[in-house]
Design a protein around this nucleic acid. Sequence first.
RNA 1: UGCGGGGUAGAGCAGUCUGGUAGCUCGUCAGGCUCAUAACCUGAAGGUCGCAGGUUCGAAUCCUGUCCCCGCUACCA
Length: 499
Amino acid sequence: MYTTTLCDVYARAMRWLGHDVFFLTGTDEHGVKVEQSAIEKGVSPQELADKNSAEFRSIMSIFELTNDEFIRTTDPEHTKQVQAFVSTLLERGDIYLGTFEGWYDEGQEEYHTETSARDLQYKSPISGKPLVRSSEKNYYFKLSAYQERIETLFAEQPNLVRPESRFNEVLGRLREGLQDVPISRTNFSWGIPMPSDEEHVIYVWIDALFNYITALGLGDSESTLCKDREKYWPAAYHVIGKEILWFHAVIWPAVLMALELPLPNCIFAHSFWISEGKKMSKSMGNFIDLEMIDSYLETYGMDAWRYYIVTQGPLGASDADFVAETFQDLYNAHLVNTVGNCTSRVTAMIGKYFNGEVQPETKDGARIVFDGFDWPEKCKTTIHSWTSSMESFSLSQAIESVMVLIREVDVFINETAPFKLAKDESKTPELGAILYQCLETLRIASILLDPVIPIKMNEFRTSICAETTNHTFEKETAWGGLEAGIKVEKVALFPRVTH
RNA sequence: UGCGGGGUAGAGCAGUCUGGUAGCUCGUCAGGCUCAUAACCUGAAGGUCGCAGGUUCGAAUCCUGUCCCCGCUACCA
């Protein structure tokens, strides 16, 4: 949910910038866990997967995320293409049938690694029975063959994995050497069968990795899906949780190399949310579940929810703490006191002094300028830093640059004191110009904040009669887009929330 | 065990590479203003920069030791 919201902000920003965006999310539905849990519940794995996926999508719909496609790894289209890709890899010898040997826990039906077996003193942690040396046939992906190419890749693309600390983490593990990885198992059946050897089922994680390209139809080059969507590969970003970094940063690029496909530009691995200083757990009562999210949405609204998780979330290397008090403080400080109050005071003055009619910023045909406040220039600077921050997925940095701009409007109002000029009729042109410049800056800021708080920013533009059309980003954010003479209503975007 | 990151005001962080008045956001306090949602603006208080040594005229910054926290240590999705 968090991950998808981040992508949503990025996708919206990129659409504003005029890029042709394909934003993909979905559900990973295969695996032993699903199979076991289905057995326990007395339903088929497919039924359980359907239920889980539907639930996930219903949650998604609440958040109005703008993904262009929702892929399910149980889609026949996905399954078919995964088998096609695996067949190709088999033909090329990148996947081979090998023997896996290890310490097997007969009670638990699972293998332990050499190190973990030693830690357990070669006994089952559950039953206490000795582990047995056992072996089975598995299909392996020849990861070891890609050691050198992956190392070169990392040397040449220092931004392949972000944040930087994750890049270094992977690099460290890379130095320990790559071994071939098993990609199939025979002890469960809920998954995609290996082509031509149906006893084997492809491991969930490798099946799931392919979603990025099966959603684009790359595994079926004759399909219309592929014709329509192949232009979207390679992806600009794969945004993932840190727990699946290794697969995305090493195995996935190696698989793509084997298939001679281009690699994604960047894999961004975020960290985890903790809650009120502790790891989330249901028994602790600090689990952020749907019910809790709902109560936040009800109290603060969806935009506030997005604003909080995007600006305070664990996009960096360390986990972030979800704290109710911080949520409220941030909401009041940024959304109520800054965005809400500033838009309110500006629209209120236009209402009070000009009957709601926006005045021109000119006098005798020339722009009225105020020392130290070159708004067209300030806006341009903000747009530039916003753009580069957004493009590099520094979402909170992009947002902060806009907040700085809005705070400066507050400074401007305090220094030029339009409410004093209002008492002097000869100053009417200046008064009108000040308010024009404030409102125009806020209009531009509202476009920049649109990716995070779309509902409120749209509401704002509607009430100042400055709805965006389908002009280019450059045109929409150009100074002077606001026309003199339009009618403005006083706004109150974010209601104050107190305990 | 090994590799990597971190410990700076009440909270969250920047500064460390390229030594030289310790900075930002929020909170607290005081003043200003009154257009605005008890808001906004200005200013102040608050820190032995994990601990102990060393180098230097001078160390948050460089070196050594030490304590604590976190991530990774693959076949687990």
